[in-house]
Simulated scan of single mutants.
Amino acid sequence: MIVPARIDYALRLLDPAPSEQVLEFGCGRGVAAGLVCDRLTTGTLLALDRSITAIEHTVRRNAAHVESGRLRAQCAKLDELGSLVAPASLDAAFGVNVNLFWTGTAEPELAALAEALRPGGRLLLCYGAPPPGSTRRVTGVIAASLTAHGFTDVVEHDAPAGSAVSARRRP
């Protein structure tokens, strides 16, 4: 399987540990979900998407991970996360090409992530390689929004494979 550069880049930045509790929002067809689960031993991944078709693809592609208990896939919106996980239970959360963080305020979604991440938990928002000169337009908006919503250690990343913003939940 050929892994898209943006997904490979996101996983290098996220670098999930084998025992972590991880959330992927906007899981699409489940490519990143499978790669994260390949790294997990005692940890788990919750994969969310608003599309039932995407969830069905994720489950089919990663049937062995679902069967092992490492992967749970759920059709839900990110702002519904509080009904799916306990507060402060996630070590890391990430999304690849989830545009709502730079096209709007994403206030309910950021509030849900802040509640679900443990203190110091990691958040990563990653995007495919943008057109030359436009990276800052996307990452700058996201970085400012994360800071305004109380996230710390906000860092903008830029590489040929993509752009990203990483942050931590306030300790």
Rank of each mutant, 00 (worst) to 15 (best):
L48Y: 09
D38S: 10
R29E: 12
G26R: 10
A32S: 08
R39E: 08
A32D: 03
T41E: 15
G34F: 00
V59T: 11
G26F: 10
V59I: 13
T44R: 11
G30W: 04
T42C: 08
L45D: 08
H57K: 14
A32T: 06
H57T: 13
G43P: 08
R29T: 15
D49V: 10
G26C: 06
A32Q: 05
S51E: 09
L48H: 09
G43Y: 02
A47L: 03
G43I: 14
L45R: 04
C27Q: 07
S51Q: 14
E56C: 09
G34D: 00
D49H: 05
V31Y: 00
D38F: 07
L35M: 11
I55A: 03
I52N: 03
L35E: 11
G30P: 04
D49Q: 05
L48A: 01
D38G: 06
R39F: 10
G43R: 15
C37D: 01
T41W: 00
T41K: 13
R61D: 07
G43H: 13
D49L: 07
V36K: 06
T58C: 15
V31M: 03
G26H: 08
T41Q: 13
I55F: 09
R39Y: 11
T44D: 10
C27T: 12
L46D: 02
A33R: 01
S51D: 15
R29F: 06
G26K: 04
C27E: 13
I52C: 07
G43S: 06
R60A: 15
L40F: 00
T44F: 05
R60N: 13
E56I: 14
S51L: 11
A32H: 03
A32W: 00
G26Q: 06
A54V: 09
I52K: 05
V36N: 04
V31E: 02
R29M: 10
G28N: 08
V36A: 03
R60L: 15
D38W: 05
T58M: 09
V36M: 07
A54K: 12
R50S: 11
R29I: 07
R60T: 15
L40H: 00
L40K: 00
R61K: 10
T42E: 14
G30V: 12
T41G: 10
L40R: 00
T58S: 14
R61E: 02
R39W: 07
C27V: 10
C37Y: 00
L46Q: 02
L46W: 01
A33D: 01
R50V: 15
T42Q: 07
R50D: 11
L45S: 12
R60M: 12
H57Q: 15
I52V: 14
I55E: 07
V31H: 01
I55C: 05
T58A: 10
R50N: 14
A32I: 02
A32F: 01
V31N: 04
G34K: 13
G34L: 10
G28H: 02
I55V: 15
L48I: 05
A54Y: 12
I52Q: 14
G28A: 10
G26T: 10
V36H: 01
H57P: 05
G28W: 07
G28R: 09
C37F: 00
C27Y: 08
G26D: 00
V36G: 04
R39Q: 14
L40C: 01
R61C: 07
C37A: 06
V59K: 05
